[in-house]
Design a protein around this nucleic acid. Structure first.
Length: 178
DNA sequence: AGATTGATAAGG
DNA sequence: CTTATCAATCTT
């Protein structure tokens, strides 16, 4: 079956990981056993120049994890309600990450983390060695489309228009349009 | 379209 | 300490 993605898989730009993670299996160990969901939608956040990226305002207590090396998880509580799960990519010292916006059966980043019981206690863990949370590749290479990112109205127009959101082509799980 | 929600970050 | 700001979701 699926193989866990190695550390060097994550040491690539978020702009590349974002579409490559489409179709991969997000795995989570729970008390009831291991659950796996296929990733259907991602978004990438790249560099301090990207005004939609949390790191654009500089390194803070919250965003410092974005500067970690690829393969680190970044779990962030949004709007006081929703935990959002991101995969930090690239090399140490450069802020970039891929937000998991949807998995098979669950559209919406808040629903994904709810379904998989991901919370801020998993912030900063290593997806390569963790027994709690990791990503596998089972060889699936689904079609995907690119779109503008959503929920980032505060970003400058230049970055709002970036096609940094990727959606699996499956018809069953249509994403909301811009 | 509007209400909600609480951690985070910046300012006094 | 106080205030403003959200990488969202649910209900009208």
């Amino acid at each position: 079956m699926g193989k866990r993605l190695p550390g060097n898989y994550y040491r690539r730009p978020a702009t590349e990981l974002a579409w490559d993670l489409i179709g991969k299996l997000l795995c989570r160990r729970t008390e009831n056993g291991i659950i796996k969901y296929r990733i259907t939608e991602t978004e990438c956040y790249y560099s301090e120049q990207d005004t939609a990226c949390h790191a654009s305002k500089g390194k803070t207590e919250r965003t410092k994890v974005l500067y970690e090396k690829g393969g680190t998880s970044y779990v962030y509580l949004c709007y006081g309600i929703h935990s959002l799960f991101n995969v930090v990519t690239g090399k140490e010292g450069f802020p970039e990450a891929v937000l998991i916006r949807g998995v098979e059966g669950y559209n919406g980043p808040g629903k994904v983390t709810k379904a998989m019981a991901i919370d801020r206690s998993l912030n900063g863990i290593d997806l390569v060695t963790s027994q709690e949370l990791w990503i596998e590749d089972d060889g699936a290479r689904p079609e995907y489309t690119a779109a503008k990112r959503v929920g980032i109205d505060y970003a400058t127009e230049e970055y709002r228009n970036m096609l940094w959101r990727y959606i699996i082509q499956d018809g069953k799980y249509k994403a909301v349009q811009n």
